[in-house]
Write a protein that binds this DNA or RNA. Structure first.
Lengths: 363, 363
DNA sequence: ATTCGTTGTTCAAACGTTTGAACAAAAGGC
DNA sequence: GCCTTTTGTTCAAACGTTTGAACAACGAAT
């Protein structure tokens, strides 16, 4: 037993020596641990990863020394060697939209659990910035990319680059079929049906639509849904009631003013975005038009303010957190078996209409 | 000249050979470029970085081949070797607060310009998550960390770890003096003065304060400012008018109800957060109390909804984007000369009161 | 006693860059 | 023409891991 004590003493000596060196400056590496224990770096690496071929005794010892030397694995080195960076890039149009930040929050939470870190980049709705972001993410050697397209984006070359690299690409909310990758979003076509059905049920007959730009798939689908739903109810399509917009508050106001100049007022406005809906509400109120009595109003996305103002705005809830969670899960599926390319997974959720005062004509 | 043509032909042959190999799979490396041009990887590396000792001819050739082979530098390898990852970690309490997402947006924009990428992590106001985030960032070998404390955080050991590592740490908005690092934020003490001065000017004499928790520096300062400002105006301090809150909408409602039970109503409420202010507004309106005539109301942070509802809520604007920009600049200063430790830089901006209907008693 | 399979570890190469030092060749100074 | 500088490039090591293969030691099975 004396021998064991001596051994222990020696170990401590070595440990102290190392502790001192390390205190001075440099970070601990796997090599330091190896030196202290007089084993090789590979053994240490394996011990830390619970490799079955390493004895429990060694594992214990390694972990103890690692703790004492305050060892922090260098992910860069690990990533370089193993080819996995454990980083996932997210491209989001803007984080200060509640919908997007909720989605991102869920994605982050879900991926953190699996040991991935998340790099968030914003395109600010600019095609150019989107390209640069993706370039930067690829250079950082992310293990995959999760993206939602900027409004401006109509060319998809940069997404092809991602696919060429062979890393998973998942799109959410704003996606395009042409890109041919997994997608998670809501059923936009169906959403419009739900909205129009509701408005018709409230007795509306002249329903205007402040739409997003039709070159974006989701807005196009909402427009199609709007038209088909009207036809379904035998309501004639009036061109002047369908306006494309960038869906900002400002443009919502502008488009509403345009509607007010029509010889015959609409009795409902369905805006493809909450900010545009708010703009509409402001203009209507400024013109002494009562909401919902004169004009019913429905927005889209369930931004928090819609429930805070008066009258509260009816809107479409897109299951923000569920989308984020599904995106993350889809990513994990793809990463777990790389060559499982066979079929794309498009997950289309049903959106949910949240009826508030702004569209309740009937009690 | 024939020789030159032949050379060119050979180069193209080699290029094609490489193109083909690369099409099959693997990514191009510096080594591939070197092989094509029959020079060494080091020459290539230097050429790509415009090293002065490399001839223009070589530089041109290298860059051309790099382009043709679609070369993407591997940042991991570069980071590992050079010790600089060009990644900056950001810790933010929640991204779906407008203030924080604006700050982050500015930071990102500013740092992108300098070639840095940004890893955003959210603490969700949890001390535990904050620790784990910082741990993860350190393991990813970020070049620096920019953080704002979670509400829960009152122990700062994890920040000491960052300092030990010797990488820059910058705090913004929610910081603590004890941590002893650069800080950018607004003058909270002064802000309360501005708010109180304004309310007094409107004729208010019983001003309530729904405050944040006093263990957080910024809220403590606002409380101090509130008290000193009242004293300055010879208004007595009434304990029951000062309530600590977590500043959510819900708690804002609760605290306001508490105020309504007092024998004598306040004639103004100053809330340290906009959501709490909104809660107050709701409760006041539900009880038939007119804002601002009966009770004036001021919030804090200038969340977008404050200007959207009716009455619009007066609030304090914190120069969101300016803070972000200054944070980024401060980080760049620190990174540019690591050993320039001498003195901390605390940048304290003056906040700006935005007066809206909710606090305009006088015309 | 020989072979075989396990167990625990070491060896050495690899991941893709960067970088100080060394070196050769060309240019410049006398 | 000789020595010195400058210019352009190569050499080799390094960054901190991971990983397949090799190896030694040992007990078990034949």
């Amino acid at each position: 037993m004396l021998k064991k004590q001596l051994e222990y003493l020696h170990l401590h000596k070595r440990l102290n020596k190392y502790s001192n060196i390390l205190m001075m400056q440099k970070k601990t590496t796997i090599k330091d641990i190896a030196n202290v224990l007089k084993i090789t770096p590979s053994a240490v690496s394996r011990a830390l990863h619970n490799h079955p071929r390493i004895s429990d005794k060694t594992k214990k010892a390694v972990k103890k020394v690692a703790l004492e030397l305050n060892y922090q694995p260098n992910q860069l080195a690990s990533a370089l060697r193993s080819g996995r960076s454990n980083l996932v890039g997210i491209v989001v149009p803007r984080t200060n939209s509640y919908f997007f930040s909720s989605v991102v929050e869920s994605i982050e939470e879900e991926l953190n659990k699996e040991g991935y870190n998340v790099i968030i980049t914003q395109s600010n709705e600019s095609y150019d910035k989107e390209c640069r972001n993706i370039e930067a993410l690829l250079q950082t050697q992310v293990d995959g990319i999760i993206a939602s397209l900027a409004n401006e984006t109509i060319i998809f070359d940069h997404y092809e680059r991602i696919k060429e690299k062979g890393i998973p690409l998942i799109l959410y909310d704003r996606g395009e079929n042409d890109i041919g990758v997994d997608y998670i979003g809501i059923d936009d076509y169906q959403s419009s049906h739900i909205v129009v059905d509701h408005l018709v049920a409230q007795g509306c007959k002249r329903i205007a639509h402040i739409a997003g730009y039709s070159h974006t798939r989701i807005y196009k689908n909402r427009i199609r849904g709007y038209i088909d739903a009207l036809l379904k109810h035998n309501i004639p399509i009036v061109d002047s009631l369908l306006l494309e917009s960038n869906l900002t508050l400002k443009d919502g106001r502008a488009k509403t003013k345009q509607l007010l100049e029509l010889p015959k007022l609409p009795d409902a406005i369905y805006a493809s975005g909450d900010y545009a809906a708010l703009g509409a509400l402001q203009v209507l109120q400024e013109n002494g038009i009562r909401v919902p009595q004169d004009v019913a109003l429905v927005g889209f996305s369930d931004e928090p303010f819609t429930s805070l103002i008066s009258p509260a705005i009816s809107t479409v809830y897109q299951h923000n957190n569920k989308i984020g969670k599904l995106v993350a899960q889809q990513f994990l599926l793809r990463i777990k078996d790389k060559n499982w390319k066979p079929k794309l997974n498009k997950i289309i959720l049903d959106a949910e209409l949240i009826v508030r005062e702004s569209s309740k004509k009937k009690k």
